Structures are given as C-alpha cells and as structure tokens.
Amino acid sequence: MLLSSSISAVHATATEVFTEAATADVEIAGLVIAVGLVAAGLMLRIRRDRDGATVFGALGYAFAVLVLAVAVRSNGWLTGADTAVAQWFVDHRSATLDQLSIAVTTAGGPAETAALGLVVAVVLVWRTKRYGPALVLLATVATASIACTLLKLIVARGRPPQSVQMMLETDPSFPSGHVTGTASLLLMLALIAGTRRPRAVRMLLLGIAIALAVVVACTRMYLGVHWLTDVGAGALLAACAVTLGSYALHRLDSPGDGTDSTPPRLLMNRISL
C-alpha cells in the first residue's frame, strides 16, 4: 500500500512538472539559459580558457537537449512546428528526391556510421602511429550514440504516422540516431583533418561537416520518420559530445593547466589530406 501510494505521488508530481514545462514561457526560459551557457563557453574560449569553455559549452548543449526532451514528453510549445514541417516535406516529395533521400539516409545509418568510424580510426593509427586521436574519435561517436539510445528509451516518443513514412520505422523517435551519429563523426573528422591547417580551411571543413549533417537531418524528415525536434535534439547531442571530444584531443598534446597560453604540440604531425 505504501509503495503504491509513493508511486502515485511520484507520478502525480511528474505529471504536474511536465504540464508546467509545456508552457511557452518555461521552455523559452530554458532555451535562453542553454544559449547563455554556450555563449559563456565561447567567451571563455576567446579568453583561451579551454577548461571553462568546454564545461560551459557542453552544459549548454546538454541543457538544450533536456529542454527539448521535456517539451516533447509533455507535448509542449516547442513541438508546435513539428507537424507543419513534416507536412511541408511530404508536400514537396518527388521521385528524384525520394531516391536521393533513401541513399543519404542509408549511408548515414548507425551501422554505416560505426563502420566508417572504425575505418577512419584504423587509417589514423596507420598514418600517425598514435592511438590517442583514433580512440577519442571512437569514444566521442560511441558516447553520443549511447546517450541517444538512452534518451529514446526515456522519452519514448512515437514516430510520425506510418501513412507518411517512406521507410517504416517503429522504434522511439527522439532524438534522431542518424543525425546524432553522423554529426558527431563528421564534426570530429573535420576537427582532426583541420589540424595544422589555416583557420579558413578549418572553418571550411567544419562548414562542410555541418552542411552534410543538415542534409542527413532533412532526409530523415523528408522520409517521414522523424520530427523537427528529433533532428534538432540529435544535432545538439552531437555538439555536446564533440565539445568534449575536441577537449580530449587538445589534452592529448597539451597536458597543461587548461589554457592555451603556450602553443600545444601539433596533434597530427604526420597526417595530410
């Protein structure tokens, strides 16, 4: 009897919390906090405080994912555009885009992402004779994927209606595993490949990685298997993991006090594109 009463009380409390969180004011406030944390991280990065920048940046992205998760779980204000965006993609389908989307989403699947990550890790070890960068790459993608799987189980969001799905998927929808995996892998590859490159080249590589991740996100919505908030959360989750992965890469060659006051030893001194 006591256990049953406790469970009922917890359920009632959770329901009340989710109901309150569904309001626009609460969700906007949550996003403002998340943006503020990320902005603080960027400011600390400019001041060459790598430790502080990593902590605030990762917390900001993680908090944004939490805000979206609560909004999705409570059918909150932030989910308001999901249906309209899904319908827009359905209305703009064509035979050519159908084939292209299926090809892109297949290439960016969890198994394909894992296989590509392993291949890249092997190449990194072969070219650099170092295991550290390869292990960081694999750990970053694996951490993002595991976190994504756990969130799927916790939030337990349903997929879009099967009537709009071009590829039947019935497992939980939030967040998008395709976006989480491909974005974390592509961004880490861009960071590693950009080592020793001019700033313009590094920005170009990051831009390409982001663009490819956006393409994957669009194909998931185009195929009718994810909502807008699903792919958004996947991108934020990948950003959180990559923030930590980038810091780990930095620490491999700069085991100092967390600042960039002294030039770090070049990470990839034997790799070239």
Rank of each mutant, 00 (worst) to 15 (best):
L2D: 13
L237Q: 08
M203T: 11
Q165L: 03
V32W: 00
I33W: 06
G181W: 00
G158W: 10
S272H: 15
Y247F: 15
A200Y: 13
G232S: 12
V120L: 09
L249V: 05
K152L: 09
L78F: 03
R251M: 09
L266N: 13
P161M: 10
P133M: 11
T143K: 02
A238W: 01
A147W: 08
R220E: 06
G57K: 03
C148V: 06
R127K: 04
V122G: 05
E169N: 11
R220H: 06
S173G: 04
V242G: 01
F18K: 09
A95N: 10
V104K: 07
L273V: 15
L3F: 12
L135V: 13
A24V: 13
L266S: 14
T15E: 11
L249W: 05
P175Q: 07
M221A: 08
A190I: 00
V35D: 01
C218W: 11
R199K: 14
A209M: 06
L97S: 12
V120H: 00
T140W: 09
L31R: 06
H226M: 09
L153E: 12
G232F: 08
L168T: 15
R197V: 06
A139I: 13
P110Y: 04
A21S: 11
T106H: 10
T128M: 12
T219S: 07
L137A: 03
D51V: 06
L42S: 09
S145A: 15
A114F: 10
G52P: 02
L37S: 07
P133V: 08
V225T: 12
R159N: 04
T15C: 03
D257F: 08
A9H: 07
G234C: 02
L189T: 01
G245Y: 03
V119A: 06
F174H: 08
S94R: 12
T105W: 04
T54D: 08
A24M: 15
T105I: 06
V72S: 13
L153M: 14
G232I: 07
E16T: 13
A200S: 14
D51K: 06
G224R: 02
V216R: 00
C148N: 14
V155E: 11
I28V: 15
A95Q: 13
G41H: 02
F18A: 11
R265C: 09
Q99C: 01
R196P: 04
D260L: 12
T149Y: 14
L153W: 13
D257V: 07
T219N: 07
L138M: 15
R197G: 05
V55L: 15
A95E: 15
A115Y: 02
G52N: 05
A239D: 09
D51N: 15
I28N: 09
A12L: 07
L212Q: 04
F89E: 08
A9T: 03
L267W: 02
L66G: 14
P172N: 03
S6H: 10
L100E: 08
A24L: 15
T54V: 09
A9S: 07
V104R: 04
A233R: 03
Q99G: 04
V17G: 00
S246E: 15
A193H: 05
G232Y: 04
E112Y: 10
R47Q: 13
A139M: 13
N269H: 12
P172F: 04
L249K: 02
D51Q: 11
C218K: 00
A107D: 05
V55R: 12
M166S: 09
R50N: 11
P133C: 10
G207L: 09
G194F: 11
T180E: 01
V85L: 05
A34V: 03
G57W: 05
S94W: 13
V72G: 14
D49N: 15
V35R: 00
